[in-house]
Computed example of a mutant assay.
Amino acid sequence: MRCGIVLPFFDAADVAECAARAEATGWDGVFLAESVWGVDAWVALTAAAMRTSKLVLGTMLTPLPRVKPWDLASKVGTLDRLSGGRVRLAVGLGAPHPGWTAFEPDQGRAERALLLEEGLAVYDGLMRGQPFSFSGKRYSVGPTDFFPRRRPCSAPACRCGWWARTRAGCRCGGRRGGTGCCPTSSRPARRRGARRARRNWRRSSRWSGRCGRPKACRGRVTTWWRRA
């Protein structure tokens, strides 16, 4: 089992320093929360990428409903190429809090779920390269030959983790390019919840048609245990 650290809202220079120390002491990954306002998580992760060579870098998590999926695909693809394929993206609905609602009203869980579903479909499609088109209730994307023409990510469908505790959430992730669930816990007593999340992911992958039998899903699950 691999272990990663979820850092609080440090400045970019502090994130880079912590990442370098984490890699030197044997940690496998460093993850950042993505805030609405403050330190940009992707800039901080870029700084960490320049100080490390093996450490996995990512967010925990990115609230995709409030982010344009093409903007996210550009950021993730750029950092993934810079780091040599070390980026992992975790997405979810996001939990409205004062740091969010001070700038944007909460659209409601149903609307955020729709934006998440369509946003992940657009993200996954763009990561697979052009030509790509999508038509949904909230997003409409047409093929383009505008720069960049090359595939933005070296392994498009293998860069998105999925934060989900329910079968429905895992099933959505399986359909839309997700390659694993990311349960986190700071207490050993919550490991049963992580096991349940893994079990849901395996079942949902089978239901969504991504594989024919549970055994094929075993290598698809990535679990990150965090330490504060």
Rank of each mutant, 00 (worst) to 15 (best):
R128E: 02
P105G: 10
P152C: 12
D28Y: 04
A157T: 14
G169P: 08
C170H: 09
T166V: 07
E111V: 14
S135F: 08
A44I: 12
W27H: 15
C153L: 07
R159E: 05
L116F: 08
K54I: 04
K68C: 08
R150T: 15
C172Y: 06
W70S: 15
D106C: 01
P69Y: 04
L57H: 11
L79D: 08
L89W: 07
L114Y: 00
G119S: 10
G161M: 03
Y123F: 15
A47V: 11
K137R: 11
V56P: 02
T101V: 15
A110E: 15
L45Q: 07
A164T: 12
L45G: 08
Y123N: 02
K54D: 15
A33S: 10
A90M: 07
V67C: 05
W163M: 06
R109A: 15
R159L: 01
S133T: 03
V36D: 01
A155Y: 05
A44P: 07
R165V: 00
G129C: 14
G94S: 09
R81K: 08
P98C: 02
V87Y: 02
D40F: 03
G29M: 13
R151W: 04
P69H: 00
C153P: 03
G169R: 06
L126F: 13
W37Y: 14
L61M: 04
G161E: 07
A157E: 09
A121S: 13
W162Y: 03
G119K: 10
W70Y: 12
T144R: 15
A90N: 06
T166M: 07
F134V: 12
S83D: 02
L57S: 08
G92W: 01
W42V: 06
E34W: 08
R81V: 00
T78Y: 09
E34Q: 14
G92F: 04
R66M: 00
F146Y: 08
V36A: 04
G169K: 07
G119E: 13
L72N: 09
V141P: 00
S133W: 00
G29Y: 06
W100E: 13
L32S: 11
R86V: 00
C172H: 11
S140L: 07
R51T: 13
C160H: 05
W162C: 05
G77N: 10
G129D: 14
W70K: 06
A41Q: 06
P98A: 01
R159G: 03
P63V: 14
A168W: 05
A102E: 05
P98S: 04
T59I: 01
G77R: 09
L126A: 07
G84K: 07
L114D: 12
V36P: 04
T62W: 04
R159T: 03
G99K: 05
E111D: 10
S35G: 10
V67E: 03
R109K: 11
L55H: 06
K68W: 09
T62C: 13
L32N: 12
A95H: 01
T46I: 00
G85D: 10
L64H: 05
S140Q: 14
P131W: 09
G173S: 09
L120R: 08
V36F: 12
G173M: 03
S135G: 15
V91D: 12
V87N: 03
V67M: 05
L114N: 07
T78A: 04
G92R: 03
R128M: 02
